[in-house]
Amino acid sequence: MSDLRNLPLAAMHEEAGARFGAFAGWRMPLSYRAGVMKEHLHTREKAGLFDISHMRLFEVRGPDAAAFLSCACPLDAAALGEGRSKYTMLLNDEAGIIDDLIVTRAGAERFIVVANAGNAEKDRNHLNELARDFNVDLEVLDRVLLALQGPEAESVLLGAGLDLSGLTFMTAAEPREKWFTTRSGYTGEDGFEIALPLTEAEGLVRAILTDERAMWIGLAARDSLRLEAGLCLHGQDIDEATNPAGAGLLWAIPKKRREDGGFVGAEALKRIMQDGIKEVRVGLKPDGRQPVRAGALLMNDAGEAVGRVTSGGFGPSVGYPVAMGYVATNASETGTRLVAEVRGSHVPISVHPLPFTPHRYRKG
């Protein structure tokens, strides 16, 4: 793993007994001494601390910042209030999903964009290309990014000296110079993401971990948590070969934007909607205890291929295997019985509603 990038707090993870693995060009903590199952359940019950510094933060500023982002994304950035965050996407000309993002309005002419690690350079190049036609500046912010997730997250942060109790889901604040915080996350639980300078990050982490309700959580439990919550992983559940309609993400695109267009991929998305969606993302519940992993073929009772699994594993909170994938529209109704092909054997599997565990966000 010598050619992988190290997280800024790598020494803290080593001290905590992390087991490392490669992810998106980074040497990432996969799990700690407690193990994946305990880490997962601890996050659902108390507070889990994740180091997500592999993700990239961009600052977009200038007189055309809102217009620029509304061109780059199917987003009405001008209508986004200060301190408000929105889930959105970067689309290509064919409405394929280059990346999914969180965009936050931090000021009248200033926005913060959080992008996925594996797509950061591609996103940056794409945005820089589009920015040529707008009066904006795009800067990569050098920050440690932490996520504290779970029902005790707010209380743990208060004890660590950070009061974010005034935030509700998908709102943001800048409590200190060069700090950027949002009430959001990737687990389905209430929680926060905190970007801050490296010089202050270790102190915050140690303050959080003095509380016995908080513990480090690795990438493996982050994946099982987001899968139970029905949240997409770019590169698996969504990519440039999928579109927002089939991925079940049209809720993130305002209806007026879908109708009026004006963003990259708008015409292609309109065509897809007019022609009819051919396949859709669904939840999947295998029979029995054997997880069905990404890449498994899905077949109907006639033995015809009707879809594929994109994410799969065991759901510790629900106590059974969970998966997501794409199936033909006529096979997407809840309860539809299919068969997954797993290493030459056939595992019965049913279309299941998403999410598998209810979201517990702190709504306003």
Rank of each mutant, 00 (worst) to 15 (best):
L69P: 04
L69E: 07
L69A: 09
S70I: 10
C71S: 03
C71G: 07
C71A: 10
A72F: 03
A72L: 04
A72S: 12
A72R: 04
C73H: 12
C73I: 02
P74Q: 06
P74M: 12
P74N: 09
A77S: 10
A78S: 09
A78L: 03
A78F: 01
A78V: 00
A78D: 12
A79S: 05
A79K: 02
L80H: 01
L80V: 06
E82F: 00
E82C: 03
G83T: 01
G83H: 02
R84H: 09
R84Q: 11
R84W: 00
S85Y: 00
S85M: 09
S85P: 00
S85I: 00
S85D: 11
K86W: 02
Y87G: 04
Y87F: 08
T88W: 02
T88S: 14
M89F: 11
M89L: 14
L90W: 06
L91I: 07
L91Y: 10
L91Q: 11
L91R: 07
D93F: 00
D93S: 14
E94V: 02
E94D: 12
A95N: 08
G96D: 11
G96R: 10
G96H: 08
I97W: 11
I98R: 15
D99A: 10
D99I: 06
D100Y: 01
D100K: 07
D100L: 04
L101I: 05
V103D: 04
T104E: 01
T104P: 06
T104H: 01
R105H: 02
R105A: 11
R105V: 05
A106C: 07
G107H: 04
G107I: 00
A108D: 12
A108G: 05
A108N: 07
A108K: 08
E109F: 03
R110E: 15
R110K: 11
F111S: 07
F111H: 03
V113I: 10
V114K: 13
A115C: 15
A115G: 13
A115K: 08
A115D: 13
N116Y: 08
N116G: 13
A117D: 15
A117W: 10
A117G: 15
G118F: 12
G118N: 15
N119Y: 09
N119S: 15
A120D: 14
A120E: 14
